[in-house]
């Protein structure tokens, strides 16, 4: 029983970070229809910001988290404004090529700046785990879980309840109608891309003290994020969040009770099965566009 609960706790913490990655991407990929291959690179960017600020400049970890989110927002918004705005998102091939280019440039820039050797970000929390009824959880992971849940809720409220969220949803449902009722469509595009990127960057910064920071860490994150978005249904915020938890728990329990060698394969097998049964994803109400 202890082991089952330990797996549940591990899977939930991992799931919270998967959910953050998934929501960021579903904003960009699901709603804006930009196949954002650079999502994982923004995650790596956030982790390197944390490394530079905390390990090199001895800055407070929590300040670094906020700065990582801010810089991620700025970088994402710049990518949209400088690169995507110009091709007006009409030709998906062009957009894809641009994003692949951004991914390659960012990954190699990280390599050039920091080298290929993994970096470690010290945690501000005690190293000794919290033990409740035989279940172990490190304070760092507990903080990651808490922060992720707060961010998930905040994003949900912004998208579903705020005027900004309303304008975003309106823009991506019908751009012309949104323009007629006075929405600044260009600004919404830039802001959406920035917000999605910011989520990826803060996830990277949150996980930097849990894992290690490397220039190729974004590859795995991108792969998982795409899987989660497809699993949850394109453009569905709730779907991406639940998809994140679902994928993490499937991986964790699959590894624990079936085979650790096929941990990733089990996750993708379930996604394949979902695609066959429900091609629009688990939680999407409508058919996929395009």
């Amino acid at each position: 029983m202890d082991q089952f609960l330990q797996h549940l706790v591990n899977g939930t913490v991992l799931g919270a970070t998967y959910a953050l990655l998934g929501i960021g991407l579903t904003l960009i990929f699901g709603i804006m229809k930009v196949v954002n291959f650079a999502h994982g690179e923004l995650y790596a960017f956030g982790a390197y910001v944390a490394y530079a600020l905390v390990s090199l400049l001895q800055m407070d970890y929590f300040v670094a988290l906020i700065l990582a989110a801010g810089l991620g927002l700025l970088l994402g918004a710049s990518i949209e404004f400088l690169l995507l705005r110009r091709c007006r998102l009409e030709n998906i091939d062009e957009v894809m090529l641009i994003m692949i280019g951004v991914m390659i440039i960012m990954q190699n820039a990280e390599l050039l700046a920091w080298g290929g050797v993994a970096k470690v970000v010290p945690t501000p929390f005690p190293q000794e785990s919290i033990i409740i009824g035989g279940i172990y959880l490190s304070p760092t992971r507990l903080f990651v879980l808490g922060a992720a849940i707060v961010l998930l809720l905040a994003f949900y409220l912004v998208i579903e309840r705020s005027r900004l969220g309303l304008a975003m949803r309106a823009t991506f449902q019908d751009e012309d109608a949104a323009r007629i009722v006075g929405v600044n469509v260009g600004r919404i595009y830039t802001l959406t891309f920035g917000l999605g990127s910011s989520l990826a960057a803060i996830t990277g910064a949150l996980l930097a003290p849990v894992f290690v920071v490397t220039p190729t860490m974004g590859d795995l994150a991108s792969l998982k994020a795409f899987a989660i978005v497809i699993l949850g249904g394109l453009g569905n915020i709730r779907g991406a969040a639940l998809g994140g938890f679902a994928l993490a728990l499937i991986e964790e329990f699959g590894a624990a009770y079936i085979s650790t060698a096929y941990r990733d394969a089990i996750g993708f097998l379930v996604i394949l099965a979902v695609m066959i049964a429900r091609p629009q994803g688990l939680f999407a109400a409508r058919e996929r566009v395009g």
Binding site: Q3, F211, L220, E252, A255, A256, D264
Partner: peptide
């Protein structure tokens, strides 16, 4: 078993714990 690029090894470790 762990994948060469895996960073979260908690499932494997929890399985070995007891």
């Amino acid at each position: 078993i762990i994948a060469p690029d895996a960073t979260d090894l908690s499932a494997q470790l929890a399985a070995l714990k007891n």
